[in-house]
Design a protein around this nucleic acid. Sequence first.
DNA 1: ATTTTTTGACCTTGG
DNA 2: CCCAAGGTCAAAAAA
Length: 331
Amino acid sequence: MDTARRSPVCLDLMVGLPMVREPSPARCAGMRAEAHISSSACGRAASTTMTNGEARILEAKFTEVSEENRRLTEMIGYLYANNQNFGRQSPEGEGEQPASTAASPTSPVGKKRGRESPDTSDSGDANSDKKINMVEADHVDVESPLSNGTCRRIKVKKVCTRIDPSDTSLVVKDGYQWRKYGQKVTRDNPSPRAYFRCAFAPSCPVKKKVQRSAEDSSVVEATYEGEHNHPRPTRDGELPSCATQGGGSVPCSISINSSGPTITLDLTKNGGGVQVVEAGEAQPDLKKVCREVASPEFRAALVEQMARELTGDRKFTDALAAAILRKLPDY
DNA sequence: ATTTTTTGACCTTGG
DNA sequence: CCCAAGGTCAAAAAA
């Protein structure tokens, strides 16, 4: 497990870009339109100091870098998810069934499955301090179509938890940090359903739905969709610190905000390198991608491009100069 | 001032 | 095309 978790890579390279959500197919058109509007607005703003041609070149470059950025982020998240899969059975660590038992895509989650063997291994550590106990853990994989025509399996896991009936918060402590983004009353259940996203979104795609059981209001059903591409923050669901955890698995992180003066570059973890554990049963092209990402050439190119992007950013160089100046002793 | 939650409106999907 | 239901967004409110 430690070996499998030794390279959690969370590389968020949103260089000077607004955070882009996981593009839902239906939203792509709108998002593209927005991107176009904003970039052309940029072009207009810039036209006071540069020619139309230059603006267009910059715009094209911007689009290209954005696209590459998105691909890299996606690839690394995917690699890490795979990496975790091979190291242990699931990110939550429960004994799950093999993926071959996956339900059909048209039936994502069996509505009400019979109560099976209680599962206390999942998130039990995080819940042990509360007066709640896991009643059921249910898990299936569903396939979600990707833009390139292939399908990616999304793990859907259902966990029933017994809580105090007077507790109306719909909060299920599972060691991760969640942000609520919606609540809805559904037809088949008088109690509302709460929608949560992982606090690390959009880099972490995991979502969960929490709703009281229609039959037993002391039981809440939490449905998890997807897998975390980062370690569990802490027992209490706190944000991870930079300190090394258990098996020395801390995500490398890069956080760049070129729209403002604050720039955070954290390449200290894992020596700033990208380790990739090759997935034994990975698809051939995935293996190829693994090798490519792990290769020194790729890393060198990545570093070079990042350096180019950063040094080319006037705001970054200004902020850097200002920071260095502050560090210099006054004479 | 900043972050998180709430909640009505909007979007998507399936029948 | 219409409708219903689930899911998501984003402005406002609360912490």
